[in-house]
Design a protein around this nucleic acid. Structure first.
Length: 83
DNA sequence: CGTATGACGTGCA
DNA sequence: GTGCACGCCATAC
C-alpha cells in the first residue's frame, strides 16, 4: 500500500468523535494539499470499518459520499454532534 | 506506460 | 443559491 493511502487512512482513523475533517484537510495532513480527490478515492475503496470515514466531509459543507450510503453518513454525524 | 474514473475544490455565468 | 467547466491526484484497467 502506497504511503499516501496509508497516511490518509491513518489521519482519518485519528479523527476524534464529534469532529470532522474536510477532504482537503486530510489531503493536506497526508502531505498532498491538492489531493482531495485522491483522498475520496482511497476512502471509497477502503472497506475497513475501523476507519471513521464518515467524519470526512466536503469543504462546501456537503457531507459528500459514503460507501454505506450518504444518508447514513449524515445520520452518524448528527449522532456524534458534528453536524 | 497511457487512458479512464471518482466519496473533491475553486471559479465563473 | 444553482449549475457547469476546468484543474488536481491516486488507483484501476
Amino acid at each position: 500500500m502506497p504511503d499516501f493511502s496509508k497516511k490518509v487512512l491513518d489521519v482519518v482513523s485519528q479523527i476524534p468523535k464529534g469532529f470532522v475533517l474536510t477532504y482537503a484537510e486530510v489531503a493536506r495532513r497526508a502531505g498532498h494539499a491538492r489531493a482531495a480527490r485522491a483522498v475520496g478515492n482511497i476512502l471509497n475503496k477502503n472497506h475497513d470499518p475501523r476507519i471513521p470515514c464518515h467524519r470526512v466531509i466536503r469543504s462546501d459543507g456537503n457531507a459528500g459520499g459514503y460507501n454505506r450510503g450518504a444518508a447514513l453518513k449524515v445520520k452518524k454525524l448528527k449522532q456524534e454532534g458534528a453536524l
